[in-house]
Write a protein that binds this DNA or RNA. Structure first.
Lengths: 238, 238
DNA sequence: CCAAAAGTGTTCCCGGTACACCCATGG
DNA sequence: CCATGGGTGTACCGGGAACACTTTTGG
């Protein structure tokens, strides 16, 4: 009483929470044939939520970074060459129990044609059209929804598309990727075309490709150097 | 040999990492007098990094959500009425040790005039102009940088400003907030003005305020209903 | 009456939109 | 020669940028 009150004790008065951390991936892909946006789902083979679909996820192991864990689970499910991966959000589902789980979600975009599914024979794995996904385990519908919004935004102001297209691509390929994700009428093809070409970071290779009927299309290559000035600037493809 | 290989064991073969989780806040504020963007820093009074400035942070306690922890540390440092808070990013600084820490960062924007600093008498606490911050503890310079970018973007396509302005404000107040954060020449005042008014979600109250010399300014109120149609659409104030 | 701040209006120009139209290929 | 997809050009329109100008206060 009247003395100095103890301050900044070394041990905090409240017990700290212990966490296990999970990583959940929202992996998108584009079905260019049927013009659909797909998301990779796996079937749970353990409780809770046994036999429900969910996003591919894993718990983070000792000596493994969050991002490594994201890549690990990804590599267990599909083989891809081209990929874009970024952290989405950290969810905090259960805040009452003693041992808590945190879910750090990642968002990825993969090129379907080059993504080979790895069936492990036990649990199911499948590409689902995003507008037909069933009710998922945990809060995975929420995570998916979140990832979908992010994808739509990213496409408009950042060059993610080129991380997922093959080295050489036609403007038609690019346009189709955009329409499948953003909807049919996001822009006229010819306008999309001229806008992008004017920006000047698409390098014409001179080669052409012929796919069935129709005039052969020029093959382009993304030029990262030429894109550099646009980095972090508010740029809109739309 | 030749038998089925064991699959999906209930206990994963690799030991899982155990985490403690910290929350670090990047709290911005606008000094309208001197036209500076400020960030809240506190002085560390424990190892490591004793006597270095850092972002206000805390470890998450049992029974406390991530967001609660963010609000708690915030409430320990300042008293605010108006505030905007959102999750920034989850950093994974040390991936080698046995007991690992995760840092979930939050980003906040507070109204300076209404934000009263709480000096606890022990450690320092201060608003620093963002372009004059010293070298901080941990990776906090990186987090700050990240938060700063987010702030600049958010201002341009979302109505965060109104979460941080008082109920009634003048267009000058709003303009000043934007110029301080985005730089002096982000837009002409009169253009900023007409663009915003045309959008229609600023309600003129009819009242006016007179601050020193000059013509009195009309007081406006943000109308959330009228803003609703712009939600999630690519809107640009610039 | 002058400085300072709020508010209005006008002009110019770039860039997006909506088309119509030409080109090259397979069948 | 026609369907199919690639590629080019043009005319219109809205909105942003820059800037001049008016209005209302305090000193």
């Amino acid at each position: 009483m009247g003395g100095n009150k103890p301050r900044s004790p070394l041990i905090p008065p409240q017990p700290l929470a212990q966490f296990k951390v999970g990583v959940d991936n929202v992996i998108f892909s584009v079905d260019t044939d049927q013009n659909r946006l797909l998301v990779l789902l796996v079937m749970r083979d353990a409780e809770p939520f046994r036999d429900r679909w969910c996003l591919p996820g894993t718990l983070v192991r000792q000596g493994e970074s969050l991002e490594s864990a994201a890549y690990r689970i990804l590599a267990e499910k599909i083989r891809v060459q081209n990929l874009y991966l970024e952290q989405l959000f950290t969810f905090d589902p259960s805040s009452t129990e003693d041992l808590r789980y945190l879910s750090v979600s990642y968002f990825a975009l993969a090129h379907l044609a080059e993504a080979e599914l790895i069936a492990d024979g036990v649990s199911g794995i499948a590409w689902y059209p995003v507008n037909q996904v069933p009710s998922l385990a945990f809060n995975h519908n929420q995570i998916l929804e979140y990832g979908h919004r992010r994808l739509c935004n990213k496409l408009q102001y950042s060059p993610v598309a080129f991380d997922v297209l093959p080295e050489l691509f036609t403007l038609g390929d690019l346009y189709q990727l955009y329409t499948t994700v953003l909807g049919e009428n996001f822009s006229d093809y010819s306008n999309f075309r001229s806008r992008l070409l004017k920006l000047g970071f698409l390098q014409e290779t001179g080669d052409k490709t012929s796919r069935g009927a129709g005039r052969p299309a020029s093959l382009y290559r993304f030029n990262a150097q030429a894109f550099a000035p646009f980095k972090d600037k508010p740029m809109i493809f739309i």
